[in-house]
Amino acid sequence: MRTVRAVAWKEIQIFFLSPTAYIVGMIFLALTGFFFSRDLGDPFPEATLSPFFQGAVIIFILLAPALTMRLIAEESKLGTIELLLTSPVRDWEVIIGKYLASLIFFLALVAMSGFYVILLFVYASPDPGPIYAGYLGLTLYGAAALSVGMLTSTLTSNQIVAAVVAMGILLALFFADLAFGAVGGLPGEIIGELGMKTHFDDFDRGVIDTRHIVYYLSVIAFFLFLSVRALESRRWR
């Protein structure tokens, strides 16, 4: 556990010291700010965070890979992975440590959007239910997106490739529910169920359904498991 903490702590320091993370943070806040405030100009605006949540899930498709692309790919490129993997550290400790670091930075980003919540509560009386549920959903969604990025970063030493492939996978998962219409029957239904967006919408409506929580946790476990395997496979290639 100490090694997980050491790996995570080192990555967190890099996150909070590197310009990339701040650029990602700035883009996130600027875009979600736009989504949040867009409908506020209406004559009778609704006191809701829904536009923010709907915008954030799209933005994360681009931002999550930008946060994770560095994590392992850079070590492969610089060769520091050789010292990491010849240290008495288990492969899962490396993956979990790095993943936790990206998750913590991500949560810090999400926490910044608390400003919008404060504004809503100061100027209106929004229904708190969908806000709690929405944040839970957003956290799970983001955590899943980061786990996808974690895997692609483990598979290559090229950060750009890692980011682009992760974006591809996330886009495919995001639009999976469209296949529900295109592919009929059971296959279509299965593909639809894999959609990351489908499972988010209930949270946005204020519904906390265990099925969706299990879905996101499964996605995270699946991609992190593959990441550990991919890291392990370096020893055999």
Binding site: K10, S18, G79, I81, L83, S87
Partner: peptide, 24 residues
Amino acid sequence: PETVPLYTDMTVTNYLKYMGTLRG
């Protein structure tokens, strides 16, 4: 290793502490 791979953005002390922790 031959290429002396190091984390270039860490200070010497922090790097050595980190490697020490990884070595348990």
